[in-house]
Each structure stands twice: as C-alpha cells, then as structure tokens.
Amino acid sequence: MSIIVRPSTKADFAAVDSLLARSYPKLLKSDYAPSVLVTALPIISRARPGLIACGTYYVGVDNDQVLAAGGWTRDRVRADKGHIRHVVTDDRALRRGIGRAILGHTIETARQAGVIELECASTLTAVPFYSSVGFEVEEDMIIELAPGIQFPAVRMRQVWQ
C-alpha cells in the first residue's frame, strides 16, 4: 500500500461523503448508544463542501481510492490556534498507518502555517488515537449538533512552541 496524502478538492466530495457515511456508523458503534447514533449520524457523517475546498483538508489515497480524510482550520479569534476537523479512516483499512499519515500531515502543515496549538473535539472512539500522537485530554464535552441532538465528545489539545 502506498498512501498519497494530498489536499482535497471539490472532486473528492462524493468519495469523502461516502467514506464518512460508511465508516462512522461502524467505528462509533461500540462507544455510543444506538439512541445517540440514530440522531447524530445523519449530521456528522456528511462531508462539508466548504471544508473539502478550504485548502487545509486532506485525503489519503491508495490506487485512486480515498481511504482517509481530515484536516485543520484556523481559529477565528487566535491566528496561532487551529482546530482538527472531520478526521476519518476507512473502517476496512484501520491499523495500516493511514489515519496517522493524515493526522501527521495535518499537524505539520498547521505548524508550518504558524499554528502553535491544535484543538480537537474527539469522538469517544478516537481518544486513544489522538493521545498516541501527542494530544492531551482537556475535558469531556457535549456538542450540540442541532436543537435537541447532543453528541458526547472529548476536547483534546496539542501545544508546541
């Protein structure tokens, strides 16, 4: 397997959307109650066109197949702070270093852009993954996805100078 990590483009929208829709239900199943997933998945497992085209969202591709995606965006208040965004790995390609390649590229490009702090709202499932690449748990949090639809998550942070 030879993964190529590159910035996503509008042409990747359908592949990322399909990846999220296929993988999130399987990956999150063991850590979330069905009652949470039934309301949250239709919201969180959809690609966002603005994010796909932002220039700091990346796809991991092998043989023209998108196997992972994720990226970062700059904080609206602090120029030296960024936010990890919508990271996903194909559930059939776990433990092959693809997610780590995406996140490593994301961290490196954020650093090169002058970011000294990255924050993420991790799913309960992904906490060990983010911890393995240097993120520290800050606090449990609830994300209000829509009125009455709450999603448990964990705020994590990585800071460097």
Rank of each mutant, 00 (worst) to 15 (best):
S30E: 14
V36T: 15
D12G: 10
Y57M: 05
H83M: 00
S2C: 06
D62G: 04
I3P: 02
D75R: 07
V16T: 12
R95V: 07
E117H: 02
V133M: 03
G50F: 06
M141V: 11
K29G: 03
Y57W: 02
D17K: 12
G82V: 03
V88E: 04
S132L: 08
L19G: 08
D90K: 06
A15E: 14
V77W: 05
A21W: 00
H86R: 13
L145S: 04
L103E: 00
L118H: 12
K81E: 13
L67F: 10
S2K: 13
G82P: 06
V36R: 03
V61K: 04
I149T: 15
A11P: 00
S30C: 01
A153V: 13
A101K: 14
E117G: 01
T125I: 10
R96M: 15
A14H: 13
G55Q: 05
P49Y: 06
A153F: 02
G60T: 04
V16F: 09
T9F: 04
E136I: 02
P128N: 07
V5E: 08
V77T: 13
G134T: 04
A33H: 13
A101Q: 15
P147I: 11
L19D: 04
R48K: 13
L19Y: 08
H105E: 12
D140P: 04
I102V: 15
T125K: 13
H105R: 12
K10R: 12
C54W: 02
W160R: 03
G55N: 09
A21N: 04
T73A: 11
A101E: 13
H86Q: 15
D64K: 15
V16S: 12
M141I: 12
T89D: 01
V59C: 08
S35T: 08
T125Y: 15
W72C: 02
Q112Y: 03
V115A: 09
G148H: 10
I4T: 14
T73Y: 07
V77G: 03
L27K: 09
F129W: 00
M156Y: 11
E108W: 03
I98T: 06
D80N: 14
D62V: 15
G114S: 00
R96N: 11
G104K: 01
T106Y: 10
E136Q: 14
G134P: 08
L124W: 08
M156H: 10
A121F: 11
G99F: 00
L94P: 10
D90G: 00
G114M: 04
S18H: 14
Q112K: 15
I98W: 06
H105I: 02
R111F: 03
V77K: 14
P7C: 08
A68M: 10
L67D: 09
V59N: 02
E108P: 05
I102H: 02
R100D: 01
I149H: 13
M141N: 07
L27S: 12
L41G: 11
V154R: 14
G134I: 07
K26G: 05
V59E: 05
V154I: 13
